[in-house]
Design a protein around this nucleic acid. Structure first.
Lengths: 219, 219
DNA sequence: AACGAACTGGAGGGAGGATCTCCGGTTACG
DNA sequence: CGTAACCGGAGATCCTCCCTCCAGTTCGTT
């Protein structure tokens, strides 16, 4: 049996733990999860040894930071799903999740990796997709969403606008909004738009594609 | 003065040179330009030493392979510009250049790096953008292109559909066509579409953004 | 068929970068 | 004030990539 009461850390140790968490948070946000422990420790103004003493590995640090935050994304999606106007719900959902991606590459990275999906990410992603499927169905019934657009097309839009967000983040953090506006106009049902070419990608294909996303090269 | 007549390579040497070129071509296409000489040599069934004997550096190999191919991209764009219907020209131009990106990550990589733009890439890119500006102007005059869409928006569409092409290339090599169809519908002029949010990105910002593109992580 | 020049493969040295350990010195706190 | 807890960061280990070097092989010429 493990010790029932873990003695609290000494004051300096706890302070350093916090510093490490803050530093990791900042670096993960701006650069994605591929940040070395050396970088994190340096950014926290602490030795690497200290970093490894508090967090056995980078994964443990990631868990400590992101466990709760993943829920935020679920909330964004469900908030959109709760909108009585399905079209507006869909659009605000895209806006919200993209705003997240634009400001937190770490969280984005987490959702895109199968690496960390050994934990809860997979289930959360499935849950989100189920909710989104409902939104798509209602927007179809409503007649506002182009009928030949599928759930996977929505995720592809998310992916492609997300790419704009990634690449332009350091130059113009709002540039993705224009790209989203264009894409959203493409999603809207309208007379005279022919059927979409090719087939919609399958869910498995999409998961596989997600997996190899990497944050843009730092400059 | 350099030797006026370079003696031809011995038969085996020439054979290996060809093998290296083919191997490099294949790897660059499928993985982008970040392929090690070790990989190329191995893929050619040849020692690394041989690779370095024939090509002083990877850059030399890249030059040998891509010098002429860059012209193809210019042709694609100019072919679109020559279309009497400006809208159709714009769309086919996007299709062509994206089809290229979907099948040749090396060429894509070359166009996106400032690294290699010390050579001709920069001028070629400028030339392409000038031609495209003309297309955009004519499509505006024609009334088919949404009036608030700028040249840079077109390049952003290219970038974002290109991201889809990148990430889905191994799963479904045609998936990008659907994404392009959606985006193109968003570009079309239509009554009732409000002004686009945010500002169009500047050319300098776009160049900077391009630079940090990386091919997706291999699986 | 035999010889010298041209060529080959791949071991290995050097550079860089990440992970993780170890220990002499420092600090908190009962 | 003593000691258990904690600290920093040098450096061991393991990658991967670049590039060189040379003993051994192959070509093509005589």
């Amino acid at each position: 049996m493990s010790s029932p009461v873990a003695r609290p850390l000494r004051a300096d140790a706890e302070r350093n733990r916090q510093r490490l968490l803050v530093a990791a948070q900042e670096l993960f946000r701006s650069r994605g999860l591929d940040v070395s422990m050396d970088d994190i420790a340096a950014h926290a103004g602490v030795g690497v040894g200290t970093a490894y003493r508090r967090f056995r590995s980078r994964d443990e640090l990631i868990d400590a930071l992101f466990e709760e935050r993943m829920g935020e994304v679920v909330d964004m999606v469900e908030q959109g799903a709760a909108d009585p106007d399905p079209w507006r719900g869909l659009v605000t959902m895209l806006e919200q999740t993209l705003a997240m991606q634009a400001t937190d590459r770490g969280l984005k990275h987490l959702f895109h990796s199968r690496e960390h999906s050994r934990r809860r990410v997979k289930e959360i992603r499935d849950q989100i997709l189920d909710t989104m499927q409902g939104m798509v169905d209602r927007a179809h019934a409503d007649g506002t969403l182009r009928p030949d657009v599928t759930l996977m097309d929505i995720t592809v839009v998310n992916l492609m606008v997300g790419a704009v967000a990634d690449l332009t983040a350091d130059e113009d953090p709002t540039a993705w909004r224009r790209a989203l506006a264009l894409a959203v106009d493409g999603l809207r049902a309208r007379p005279g738009t022919g059927p979409l070419p090719s087939e919609a990608i399958s869910r498995e294909q999409f998961e596989a594609a997600l997996e190899c996303w990497r944050p843009p090269a730092p400059r």
